[in-house]
Design a protein around this nucleic acid. Structure first.
Length: 311
DNA sequence: CATGCGTGGCT
DNA sequence: TAGCCAAGCAT
């Protein structure tokens, strides 16, 4: 099995690391070829813009909820300039209930920047991608890798978990991405750009489908025998528990309720209507002020509210 | 580097 | 049932 990927000669001082990596690469990439989901942003016709839209939507939102919204967005705004020409509030409205609606605002801003600074084409350069609003370390690498086939370490929560288990031997990665993780990801990255891009997609998919946080399906995993965490007996996570996100009763929930009213409204909404979404006037005011500050809502001269620039 | 930022399905 | 969790980013 593994012999097929063994190199004929290894420098005497070298460890078996290179061969180990090759074994990991071939197994995971082969598994991906067989089990990858047919997602619309992975099809060639999606283009870089499709990839970018999907990446924004997938930031903290599951694939299944993204799918219908993604389709609608690309039908409606097939190019960055199409989105840029809309009022930002329309992007927020079309975002629907994906959550974290400022992503919609940032995607709209990114589209405007692409239209103005990059001739309407999603930039291919990693540094230029990073400069776009809403594009961080992960998204820049993902777009450069998936859309343009470049060689980048793509470190999302799935990949980090796969590496933590398969290589480091822990159940979960650290809370925040560490320098050690980046270094490991670079070391594991195949030399050939196309292979590196395939590896990035494949490790993400492995984390999403088999090597999941809650109940990993090691029985189906292509690298189960190589997995450091399994070899160590699948030890339980040590250290501080990950900060759990409370939601009920927070400003976030109130913001969500306010924004839901504005999203569904066909005309600007008077204060009295917004007052009904939450019982605590102080928190209500704080939430609404926050939305205004963030540019997710605007107050008209007559005192009514609406999504920014929306009709 | 910890925190704030939505929403809903799953165990 | 009540957390836990989901392809992060900006500050």
């Amino acid at each position: 099995m593994t012999a097929t990927t063994a190199t004929t000669a290894t420098a005497s001082t070298a460890t078996t690391t290179a061969d180990d990596h090759t074994a990991l690469h071939s197994r995971v990439i082969e598994w991906f070829g067989k089990h990858a989901r047919d997602l619309p942003w992975r099809r060639p016709e999606a283009g870089a813009w499709g990839v970018m839209v999907s990446e924004f939507m997938l930031q903290q939102t599951p694939v299944n909820r993204v799918l219908p919204v993604y389709e609608e967005w690309l039908r409606r705004w097939p190019r960055p300039a199409d989105l840029a020409a809309e009022a930002p509030g329309e992007a927020v409205r079309a975002w629907g209930r994906l959550g974290y609606p400022r992503r919609a605002l940032r995607l709209h801003s990114a589209a405007a920047a692409i239209a103005e600074r990059h001739g309407g084409e999603v930039p291919t350069d990693h540094h230029q991608l990073l400069a776009l609003p809403g594009v961080g370390e992960y998204t820049a690498a993902a777009v450069a890798s998936f859309a343009y086939g470049q060689r980048h370490a793509v470190l999302d929560t799935n990949v980090r978990r796969v590496f933590a288990r398969a290589v480091t031997g822990t159940q979960f990665p650290p809370n925040a991405t560490t320098a050690a993780e980046r270094k490991l990801a670079r070391m594991l990255l195949p030399e050939e750009p196309a292979t590196a891009a395939g590896w990035a997609a494949a490790t993400m998919e492995l984390g999403a489908l088999l090597c999941t946080a809650r109940t990993p399906e090691c029985a189906r995993c292509p690298i189960a025998e190589l997995c450091a965490w399994r070899r160590a007996g699948s030890p339980a996570h040590e250290g501080p528990p990950r900060r759990s996100q409370t939601y009920a009763g927070t400003d976030r929930q109130v913001r969500g309720k306010l924004l839901a009213v504005l999203r569904e409204a066909v005309a600007p909404v008077p204060q009295s209507v917004l007052d009904r979404v939450w019982y605590d006037p102080e928190q209500r005011t704080r939430a609404l002020t926050g939305l205004l500050t963030d540019g997710l809502a605007e107050r008209l001269p007559d005192g009514r509210y609406r999504l920014p620039g929306a009709s």
